[in-house]
């Protein structure tokens, strides 16, 4: 009898909540629980500084995650974002370094005004995105293979432009501004940009036909095509969007450090994928949400800062990320299976 009752309760709940909001709530609970556990076990973890640092240290993953989430929802991967972050950082520095002043080759740039440099950098990032789009949307090559290639190309361009090192000499003062405008505490303007992007992405995801088409393509590409969605153009747009967001991230990060570093952003592609998966997205397409991704980013942030607080060796970050992702995938599938039985 009692079991029956709870079953009915579940059913009525299932009528009210979509799978997506259900998962989002569960993951939010997980986030709170993890934060509580970390606060109880680690000295001085529970403080405003920790909460602020969570935002300050994870905004770039959120920006990258927006593009990756849309792609994953449509059933595609993007491993090139980390490479584009490195490339954008180095190129933005290279373009606005003084043209004829540097003593060394690494101080020698193109001497453009910063605004032009940013635009040109974003254009270069869009070229990488266009490469992805051409091969994946048009020629229908597996996205993992193509984006592994463009990842190498983007990071490779960064390394060549930085001669295998970093470009920081002779940068104009304005280069270090946009990444370092303080809002409050450790939070800088970049976090606000990330927040704005998330709000825009939420709007696009929920309220525009563009967003809903993305889900349709992911759920059933053929059905989407037959119902008049221009699938190829749509996927191409998503890849361009993702590369543009990665470019913005790269420019902001370079500005924050006031240097274009060619090794920057290694592993970002995995982190962006991890937070998206933590948010309940599935590579099989049609499932996932930007809100879930943000929660996922917070979970990952709590886990890494807790590992840091427990004085674990930095190598643990790799392993923890892998374990957390694995657990999230398994747990989410179990929950949904049980719920939709």
């Amino acid at each position: 009898m009692r079991k029956n009752e709870s079953n009915m309760k579940n059913r009525s709940l299932a009528g009210k909540l979509s799978n997506e909001s259900y998962l989002n709530r569960v993951m939010f609970l997980v986030l709170i629980t993890l934060f509580a556990i970390a606060s109880m076990t680690i000295k001085n973890y529970f403080s405003t500084a920790t909460a602020l640092n969570l935002v300050a240290n994870n905004w770039y993953i959120v920006i990258l995650g927006v593009g990756v989430t849309f792609l994953l929802v449509s059933g595609h991967l993007d491993m090139s974002v980390g490479g584009i972050v490195a490339m954008a950082g180095v190129l933005s520095a290279y373009f606005c370094q003084p043209a004829n002043e540097g003593f060394s080759e690494l101080g020698q740039g193109l001497g453009m005004p910063y605004g032009v440099a940013i635009l040109l950098t974003l254009l270069c990032c869009l070229v990488i995105g266009a490469l992805n789009a051409l091969f994946i949307a048009k020629m229908r090559v597996a996205s993992i293979i193509v984006t592994l290639g463009t990842m190498s190309i983007a990071r490779g361009i960064g390394q060549v432009a930085a001669l295998g090192a970093q470009r920081s000499a002779g940068l104009p003062d304005i280069f270090g501004v946009i990444g370092n405008v303080p809002l409050f505490g450790p939070i800088k303007i970049a976090a606000a940009i990330a927040a704005l992007l998330v709000i825009a992405a939420l709007f696009i995801e929920k309220k525009t036909s563009f967003g809903r088409r993305t889900y349709l393509i992911g759920a059933n590409r053929e059905a989407a095509r037959l119902s008049g969605v221009k699938v190829e153009r749509h996927i191409a747009l998503l890849y361009l969007l993702s590369s543009l967001l990665a470019g913005i991230t790269g420019i902001l990060l370079a500005s924050e450090m006031k240097a274009g570093i060619s090794t920057r952003g290694s592993g970002f592609e995995f982190s962006a994928l991890v937070v998206t998966l933590l948010g309940g997205a599935s590579i099989d397409g049609g499932v996932g949400s930007v809100l879930g991704m943000v929660i996922g980013a917070m979970i990952l942030g709590v886990v890494s800062s807790a590992a840091y607080g427990m004085l674990l060796r930095p190598e643990w970050q790799f392993i923890l990320k892998a374990i957390v992702t694995f657990l999230a995938i398994i747990a989410q599938r179990y929950l949904l299976d049980r719920r939709n039985k």
């Binding site: 290639g149 190498s152 390394q159 295998g164």
Partner: peptide, 13 residues
């Protein structure tokens, strides 16, 4: 050496 990665990506494409 720093051309390696770019070359690898180009060969993959």
């Amino acid at each position: 050496e720093y051309w390696q990665l770019l070359a690898k990506g180009a060969v993959l494409v």
